[in-house]
């Protein structure tokens, strides 16, 4: 009897835990080395291809409705000819304390056991709260029903659903790849290895600036890179605890980019 009560009390106590999970299965983390990024946007193209993102055309882009889940922000410093251009790829930061998650009234966005900030497309009713609360402006909205011109609909990724009009979406860290990697690992009765999973952006980056892995695994590449002195996170002062770690670019004159 007392054992049962203790179990119930333990359960109740666990509901008061911030973040709820006592231990995450994984904590997927992306490390982006800005020293290696040359702003080629191969990652953006890969993301379009992998995640069935529609190409909206020039007019819509001018209205700031471009669909890229991942964007390369360009900041130009100085006057010609003494110009410095800085790039920073920004995608969903998968915040551990994400403001968007508390905003959604219908649980369309939430945090899962892998430390991912997940968007469930077909639960979304489109209240825009998540996108408004997002401090990184990474959420994208399906303003229209987008159609793919005739032969292109055949290249859609079957592992990713094509989103309906009126639905919010965002970078998922290529969750379909994570899922299939975990599936394979399960079939082979082994844990997921470091390097099993490569999101489309990471896979396509010609300079290898984007690393992906489980930061809970101390042997993983990202865990090691995360200890780098060049490490910083975007808008860290807002206390959203993002899962994307940037490594500062060290300029020729010794100054560093951003911050």
């Amino acid at each position: 009897m007392s054992g049962l009560l203790e179990r119930i009390a333990g359960k109740l106590r666990s509901y008061r835990e911030p973040g709820y999970y006592t231990k995450l299965d994984h904590k997927w983390t992306m490390v982006i080395d800005l020293d290696k990024c040359n702003g080629c946007e191969a990652c953006v193209v890969a993301c379009y291809a992998e995640n069935n993102l529609p190409v909206v055309g020039r007019e819509e882009c001018e209205k700031s409705r471009a669909f890229s889940w991942l964007r390369i922000e360009r900041y130009v410093e100085g006057e010609y000819p003494d110009v410095k251009v800085k790039f920073i790829p920004v995608m969903c930061q998968h915040c551990m304390k994400a403001p968007c998650e508390t905003g959604c009234p219908v649980y369309a966005t939430y945090h899962n056991q892998d430390g991912l900030n997940v968007q469930v497309y077909n639960r979304c009713v489109g209240t825009f709260t998540c996108a408004t609360y997002c401090t990184y402006d990474v959420r994208r909205f399906n303003w229209f029903t987008y159609k793919w011109p005739k032969p292109l609909e055949a290249q859609l990724n079957p592992d990713v659903s094509v989103r309906e009009m009126g639905v919010m979406e965002k970078c998922t860290f290529c969750i379909q790849r994570i899922r299939s990697a975990k599936d394979t690992a399960k079939d082979e009765s082994r844990p997921v290895k470091d390097g099993d999973i490569k999101p489309a952006c990471s896979q396509s980056c010609p300079t290898g600036a984007i690393y992906f892995g489980d930061i809970q695994d101390p042997e993983s590449v990202v865990a090691k890179l995360a200890k780098s002195p060049r490490r910083y996170r975007l808008l860290e002062e807002l206390n959203a605890d993002p899962s994307v770690i940037y490594l500062k670019r060290v300029m020729g004159d010794g100054t560093s980019s951003h911050e």
Binding site: Y110, Q113, V118, V120, Y121, N122, R123, S161, I175, R179
Partner: peptide
């Protein structure tokens, strides 16, 4: 395990 996680079944 994780049977109630939305992305276990949704995509």
């Amino acid at each position: 395990k994780n049977g109630h996680d939305c992305w276990t079944c949704h995509k």
